[in-house]
């Protein structure tokens, strides 16, 4: 199944997503890390996330762009974290898909979901703020918004995490 986990900043999305993977049972756990370590703050964030999942037996695969090239062992339970970084990488990194970001990311999601037993995707709510952004940032919102909607459409479950409280948006079965 595909499970989309979204929410605001600092809301406990990762902790919830990790617990969902553990609930799937003892099959191999893969963590697809999308944050590109470009400064001290991102190194700190990465270290914090590593610490959180240290005892949870994840194998980590780094994927900054090109999710459709990532091969997952059949039946593994996969946590992809997070979509907002992957989309920014695809848009702005040299190896990225640029204007083709939405299609490339969705191909990647389908590719991973095909071999994974379960796929949990962490995304981010970046759409509600009374700020006028520049055209480039608007485009980022547009791409990530489209991707969130497309994943939610094919997902079996969509959850919004609000300060650690899980608000279910979609549940099938």
């Amino acid at each position: 199944m595909i499970h989309l986990v979204t929410g605001g900043s600092g809301s406990g999305k990762s902790a919830f997503a990790e617990s969902c993977i553990l609930d799937f049972g003892p099959a191999q756990r893969i963590y697809i890390a999308t944050m590109y370590p470009f400064d001290e703050e991102s190194h700190r964030k990465i270290a914090r996330h590593r610490e959180m999942r240290k005892s949870k037996a994840f194998d980590t695969i780094e994927c900054f762009t090109g999710l459709e090239q990532v091969d997952i062992p059949g039946g593994a339970n996969v946590l992809l974290e997070c979509m907002s970084n992957l989309v920014a990488n695809e848009m702005y990194q040299e190896a990225g898909a640029h204007e083709e970001t939405v299609a490339a990311v969705m191909r990647g999601v389908r590719h991973v979901a095909e071999s994974a037993g379960n796929l949990v995707i962490v995304s981010n709510e970046i759409f509600s703020d009374g700020v006028e952004y520049d055209a480039e940032t608007r485009r980022y919102q547009e791409y990530l918004g489209k991707i969130n909607c497309e994943i939610a459409r094919v997902a079996d479950r969509v959850s919004e995490v609000v300060y650690g409280i899980v608000v279910e948006a979609k549940e099938i079965g």
Binding site: G8, E41, I126, V131
Partner: peptide
């Protein structure tokens, strides 16, 4: 206020 639902701010303090 429920904050943190906008684009990640450029300023380190705001983030």
């Amino acid at each position: 206020n429920e904050i943190g639902y906008g684009v990640v701010p450029v300023e380190a303090f705001e983030r």
